[in-house]
């Protein structure tokens, strides 16, 4: 049987103007959520390696819960479930940012923990032997080195979270996939539009990768 279907490039490119309005939403949810997730990650990552069990245990609980449940369930819980507790609706944008924040925060906690623990014990010992306090040793010696080592896995998490926002089409937030679905509903060009949606994600994530590689090349990462 002869394949008669043609990929309609005109339809693909024609969809771009209809998809572009989704990009600011995708970026806002991704980077808004990641910024909060980064703060959460530092706090819980450091709690995770604290000497105090009362800091360690809540951090472990948080990480296990949010790493061990699907982000789709998390966002549905926040968007549909939490309002029942709070007694008022949560808008879709807030729910999306919150979901990325708590989800990436769990992974970033582990990145922070790994980064800090990867610094040789001798660095801390040398700092302490010079009379620096534990806090100073962390701030001036451990953290700057740990942070450089954290950049590649943080970039990785950034890319994952950007893609995760595509799931939030289910709560009706107007991000890329949602814009695609709306457009397809009138044109029925699913192949071309989803292809374009994929390309736009790739453009975003690839830009981020290039930026990270640039940082690495300038020697700001690693050691």
């Amino acid at each position: 049987m002869e394949v008669t279907f043609q990929f309609d490039w005109a339809a693909a490119f024609g969809s771009i103007p209809h998809l572009l309005p989704g990009i600011p939403w995708t970026l806002l949810i991704s980077f808004g959520g990641l910024a909060i997730g980064f703060v959460i990650g530092i706090v819980f990552g450091l709690m995770r390696i604290s000497r105090s069990r009362w800091l360690r245990l809540p951090a472990i609980l948080y990480i296990e819960v949010f790493r061990g449940t699907p982000i789709l369930v998390q966002v549905l819980f926040i968007f549909y479930g939490l309002p029942q507790l709070l007694g008022g609706p949560i808008n879709a944008l807030t729910a999306g940012i919150a979901a990325i924040a708590v989800n990436s925060g769990a992974y970033i906690s582990e990145v922070v923990r790994g980064g800090v623990q990867s610094i040789e014990r001798g660095q801390r010992e040398a700092s302490l032997s010079l009379g620096l306090s534990r806090t100073q040793a962390f701030r001036y010696v451990i953290w700057p080195q740990a942070f450089r080592r954290m950049i590649p896995p943080l970039g990785n998490q950034g890319i994952i979270s950007i893609k995760d926002t595509s799931l939030f089409s289910v709560i009706g937030v107007g991000e890329l996939v949602r814009q695609g679905q709306i457009y397809i509903a009138t044109t029925f060009t699913a192949l071309e539009v989803y292809f374009m949606v994929a390309m736009l994600y790739l453009a975003i994530t690839w830009s981020l990768s290039l930026l990270l590689r640039q940082l690495e090349r300038r020697g700001l990462v690693g050691q």
Partner: peptide, 12 residues
């Protein structure tokens, strides 16, 4: 003051 076997200089 202390000097270590592995130097332990701050690489950054």
């Amino acid at each position: 003051g202390m000097v270590f076997q592995q130097f332990n200089l701050f690489p950054h």
